[in-house]
Simulated scan of single mutants.
Amino acid sequence: MSANLEIKWSGKRFPVEFSSTKELEQTTVKQLKQICERITGVSPKDMKINAFGALMNNDDMPLSVYGLRPGCYVTLKVTKHKKSASREEKPHHHHGKHHHKEAPNNKQTSHGPPPPLPNRPTPTASAPAQSSPAQPAPAATSSSELQGEAILLDQLQKIQDKIDKDITPQVRKYEKTVKEFLNQPTKTDKEKKKQIYMGAYLGEQLMHVLFDLDGFTCGPDNLNARQARKEAVKSAQSLLDTVDEIKAVVKNVAVIDPKEE
């Protein structure tokens, strides 16, 4: 049975079909970037791909490590910067100055028109009076936006507390336990699997956190909420990178079967 993965880029969605779920999960990040290149024309070196808000920064890792499965989507961002056309802008500024100099001279040559001009602003003086009743409406809107952002900040703080008070201590304990395991003169396969399982558990917890953060929609005016979400994603991503590095070390450890001693 085929499996689909969706790529979001530049406001558009591009479905990618795999022959099976196994093929999707075993596809590496590097291969996914090559698929994105064929679709968008963007070079892989200029790409950043996010899954559930987490940066997929290891090209050799399979997509299953990042929790991707059929029906999921990834977000593609381009990091290449465009060249500035500063040389073309300078002539326009110079021409603009010349026009401004000529315009006042034309007005000064005619002495008759200036007297009627001061009389025209008198009707326009009533225009600001019409705009004053509209001021309460924006005030009500801004207060509702503040309330909405306060709710977002409260929810984001709960996630940040979970990262700081629950997951971070577990990751630090995992680091300590693995160091003790590595310092043991004899390492059994049972102990090795235990450490790998613990790393997989912590990685899954962090992926769930990143998935929750990816579901937050912060408006352009919710600057505090956007910053809080950014910091939470950064914290979770950093811990996930640490767990992945520890697991990679444990997987390469040679073990001794007690029966062979």
Results as ranks from 00 to 15, higher is better:
residue 1 M to H: 13
residue 1 M to T: 10
residue 3 A to G: 04
residue 9 W to E: 00
residue 11 G to S: 01
residue 13 R to T: 15
residue 13 R to D: 15
residue 16 V to C: 02
residue 19 S to C: 02
residue 23 E to H: 06
residue 25 E to Q: 15
residue 27 T to W: 02
residue 28 T to I: 02
residue 37 E to C: 04
residue 37 E to R: 07
residue 44 P to K: 00
residue 51 A to D: 04
residue 54 A to D: 03
residue 57 N to Q: 06
residue 58 N to R: 11
residue 66 Y to F: 07
residue 69 R to L: 14
residue 73 Y to M: 13
residue 74 V to I: 05
residue 80 K to H: 06
residue 81 H to P: 03
residue 82 K to P: 07
residue 82 K to E: 11
residue 85 A to M: 12
residue 90 K to V: 11
residue 101 K to R: 10
residue 105 N to T: 06
residue 105 N to H: 13
residue 113 P to C: 00
residue 114 P to N: 01
residue 115 P to D: 04
residue 116 P to Y: 04
residue 119 N to S: 11
residue 124 T to H: 15
residue 124 T to E: 13
residue 125 A to S: 14
residue 126 S to A: 11
residue 126 S to H: 14
residue 131 S to W: 13
residue 132 S to F: 10
residue 134 A to F: 14
residue 135 Q to N: 10
residue 136 P to I: 08
residue 139 A to G: 12
residue 142 S to P: 07
residue 145 E to G: 13
residue 145 E to L: 11
residue 146 L to H: 12
residue 148 G to I: 06
residue 148 G to N: 14
residue 157 Q to R: 12
residue 163 I to T: 00
residue 164 D to Q: 15
residue 166 D to H: 07
residue 166 D to Y: 07
residue 168 T to W: 04
residue 171 V to Q: 03
residue 173 K to D: 06
residue 176 K to N: 02
residue 182 L to M: 12
residue 182 L to F: 02
residue 182 L to C: 08
residue 183 N to R: 12
residue 183 N to C: 02
residue 185 P to Q: 06
residue 188 T to V: 03
residue 191 E to P: 02
residue 193 K to L: 10
residue 195 Q to V: 03
residue 198 M to R: 12
residue 201 Y to H: 14
residue 201 Y to T: 11
residue 208 H to M: 11
residue 215 G to W: 08
residue 216 F to G: 10
residue 216 F to E: 09
residue 217 T to L: 09
residue 220 P to G: 09
residue 222 N to E: 15
residue 224 N to D: 13
residue 230 K to N: 15
residue 231 E to M: 15
residue 233 V to K: 14
residue 233 V to Q: 11
residue 237 Q to L: 03
residue 241 D to S: 04
residue 243 V to G: 05
residue 245 E to A: 13
residue 247 K to A: 05
residue 252 N to G: 13
residue 255 V to P: 08
residue 255 V to W: 05
